[in-house]
Nucleic acid binder design. Structure first.
Length: 258
DNA sequence: ATGGCCGAGATCCTCGGA
């Protein structure tokens, strides 16, 4: 089974790119973030025409997450944490793979910049609430996949020039520690597990010719609970969608489960 | 060295993103 995650930066502006990705890459399930629209304006039919059912947690203009899936997703949960700013940032659900129930958590974590503002405080609080909730979930569900835009650069190797990001909400030590804290509950950063020293990115800013210069960062991740790691066959970053006309600034990351 | 974009939504600019 192929599960992908992609911050699409507006689902309505990206319908053609998303459909083309579904046709070319054929994921069984795609987690998308930053859909920037309410459920009532979600382009359900465009994906339905290609055999995908959508499960949406939207918001007007900002944020919003969804599953686009060929496999059935049960127990959809749009109240995973109590978001202090009432923003639509997490949709969870359960799928069956072989005989295992797997809990999927699709996240769009707050950016947090600039750091001397409420936005950064919100990001830290959001992570604290999320970590607390995941700890609770682990008591009942042993097979968990957390995918999405974590807005964290885990290590120096994960950004084109780490010296520029020491005081950035994506790379501050304090925020990278939240990522470690989450992983230490019992998860693997799957990309890094399979690629010990590889330098690849999932995001390139629209500005400053970042894509052309490969000034990117790895901020979109798949974490899987320890129980699942031996079921993971591979993980890849597909750079093609970032090179298309009218691209998102992020590109998909794809997880293959046996 | 520096700065360079894009989407939504209500106008002809602001906010947010990373």
């Amino acid at each position: 089974m192929k599960i992908s995650s992609w911050n699409v930066n507006s689902v309505r502006a990206r319908v053609n790119n998303i459909v083309s990705y579904l046709k070319n890459s054929n994921p069984d399930l795609l987690m998308i973030q930053e859909i920037k629209t309410e459920e009532k304006n979600f382009p359900y039919d465009d994906f339905k025409n290609h055999g995908y059912k959508s499960y949406v947690f939207g918001q007007k203009s900002y944020n919003g997450v969804a599953f686009i899936s060929k496999v059935n997703i049960d127990k959809i949960d749009i109240n995973f944490i109590k978001d202090i700013n009432k923003q639509s940032r997490i949709i969870a659900g359960t799928i069956k793979n072989k005989s295992k129930d797997i809990k999927l958590v699709n996240v769009y974590v707050p950016n947090g910049n600039p750091i001397e503002t409420e936005k950064y405080e919100y990001k830290k609080k959001w992570y604290d609430l999320f970590i607390k909730k995941i700890k609770k979930v682990l008591a009942n569900d042993i097979n968990i996949i957390i995918g999405g835009d974590f807005n964290i650069i885990p290590e120096k190797i994960d950004v084109y020039d780490h010296t520029k990001y020491e005081n950035d909400a994506l790379f501050k030590l304090e925020i990278r520690k939240k990522f470690r804290e989450l992983i230490n509950l019992g998860f693997y950063d799957v990309y890094r597990y399979f690629n010990k020293n590889k330098c690849e990115y999932t995001f390139w800013d629209y500005m400053a010719g970042s894509w052309q210069k490969d000034h990117g960062m790895r901020i979109d991740h798949f974490l899987v609970s320890n129980n699942l790691i031996n079921d993971i066959k591979n993980i890849t970053i597909d750079k093609k969608p970032r090179s298309k006309i009218k691209p998102s600034d992020h590109t998909p990351i794809e997880l293959i489960i046996n």
